[in-house]
């Protein structure tokens, strides 16, 4: 039975189901329960994460499995790596993906490489949940989208869901995957509502979801930008252009076939990615299509990304930083060669 619940509730439900299913699943991170050892605090009053995503889990599973950590990312993310390698199935919360600077070694040199360096004799079933995304007026150190950084590193899997239903199925798949997974949660999507099936289900990695079908133009969009692409597609439809909107859902592995098949059909590609443009996933997908799908193309590939600057604080500037449906429409007009597409 599907119900309408929020992105945040879908994630909470996924963790709850995973922890019920397997006693080796633990959750650790800064304030994932909150208020550890405070005498007067009842578990139901505890934060459950700074955004409340893990609220209530400590009530059901106790503080032995929902572990508040000090603000020491290298310490607890590193601990989660070997906790995974020695028999647990941890979900470690890195509050903001921007904090990776404090624990990149543990992710890049330890989690990602143990299996390969040890000749396949280790596995690291670790999920690192982390918040990303601009538009929250959170400024330069709490707003980045750093998934390209992790996609670059062999040994890691990278998941960026765009809807509550995908978030739940992909998080469950992440937790029960035997490789380290970096799971991105856009902080501006937490309150988004959507239909989500009850009970346990997983969504396999490496299978893109075609969020909207169309024959004239392919738009590949990542995370929250799927919704920017869908808004643009709705306006394009009014102007007689049918855009296909593809959500890769996992950036590593990447479903190359779905992207290439779509471009083979449409001949045109726009990639919408709110991360900075250099060495980005947008650049990577563009290179993929230029390399393996050059003959399909009727027009240059367009990338709608953030500019090459940090995320600004001022709302006036942050709104300029992010992709918008209008930016997508302008690119569509250019590659279709029809300037009437751009809204006046």
């Amino acid at each position: 039975m599907a119900r309408t619940i929020s992105f945040s509730a879908a994630l909470n439900e996924a963790m709850r189901l995973a922890m019920r299913k397997d006693e080796h699943v633990i959750l650790l991170g800064e304030d994932v329960a909150g208020g550890a050892t405070v005498d007067h605090l009842q578990d139901d009053e505890a934060w459950g994460g700074v955004m409340g995503v893990t609220k209530g889990l400590v009530q059901e599973f106790g503080r032995e499995r929902v572990l508040d950590t000090p603000i020491a990312e290298a310490g607890y993310i590193g601990a989660a790596v070997t906790a995974a390698a020695t028999g647990l199935r941890p979900i470690a919360e890195l509050m903001f993906n921007d904090f990776i600077g404090s624990c990149l070694d543990e992710v890049m040199n330890q989690a990602a490489k143990l299996r390969y360096m040890f000749g396949g004799k280790a596995k690291v079933p670790l999920t690192i949940r982390t918040m990303h995304g601009a538009g929250f007026r959170a400024a330069a150190q709490h707003s980045q989208s750093l998934y390209a950084l992790f996609t670059h590193i062999p040994g890691l899997k990278v998941v960026v869901p765009s809807t509550p239903a995908d978030a739940k199925g992909l998080l469950l798949a992440s937790i029960f995957d035997d490789d380290p997974v970096i799971f991105f949660e856009d902080k501006t999507l937490y309150n988004m509502k959507g239909e989500v099936e009850e009970g346990f289900y997983t969504i396999p990695f490496g299978i893109a979801d075609i969020k909207r079908q169309g024959d004239d133009l392919t738009i590949v969009a990542i995370g929250k930008q799927v919704h920017t692409a869908l808004k643009a597609a709705a306006i394009l439809q009014e102007r007689g252009v049918e855009a296909e909107v593809i959500d890769p859902r996992t950036l590593s592995p990447l479903d190359e076939n779905t992207i290439l098949s779509s471009v083979a059909k449409t001949g045109r590609l726009i990639v919408v990615d709110e991360a900075n443009p250099r060495c980005s996933v947008a650049a990577d997908i563009s290179a993929l299509v230029a390399d393996k799908g050059f003959d399909y193309l009727d027009a240059p590939i367009k990338r709608i990304t953030a500019p090459h600057c940090p995320v600004p604080f001022s709302p006036a500037l942050e709104d300029l930083y992010l992709p918008t449906p209008e930016k997508v429409l302008r690119a569509a007009a250019e590659i279709i060669g029809d300037e009437t597409i751009v809204p006046v």
């Binding site: 310490g75 607890y76 590193g78 601990a79 989660a80 906790a83 020695t86 647990l88 330890q110």
Partner: peptide
């Protein structure tokens, strides 16, 4: 250091 802590946690 963190890796030993993780094994100790398990």
């Amino acid at each position: 250091f963190p890796l030993a802590v993780g094994a100790g946690l398990t």
